[in-house]
Amino acid sequence: MNGSTLLAIAGMSLATFACRYGGYWLFSHIRPTPALRTVLGYIPGALFVSYVAPALFAGGPMQWIGGAATVVLMLVVRDLSLAVLGGTAIAWVWWSYV
């Protein structure tokens, strides 16, 4: 066990919990206006798009084909695990043979 390593882990853990707890705490101590509630309703979709878009932009055909396959599978079978496994499998096939 190393002192600076443990301190770094402690710092990371406290910072992360502060984010997890702080946002909820803050919003429960201010009265959310209708505008704020509207914004919160849009956050989930916008957040996940913001994960995915830069990765697809920086990626190549493997990510694009795998991503498209994942969306199509999700729309057709409506099953998260099948869509993820299928999309990844198709990306893997592309990566292996093309």
Binding site: Y51, V84, T88
Partner: peptide, 20 residues
């Protein structure tokens, strides 16, 4: 660049569908 790492991205892509 191994496709195993694509699984994480696929999770987020798939989650966007029911969130629509």
């Amino acid at each position: 660049n191994h496709p195993i790492f694509f699984a994480a991205l696929a999770v987020f892509i798939a989650l966007l569908v029911p969130m629509w």
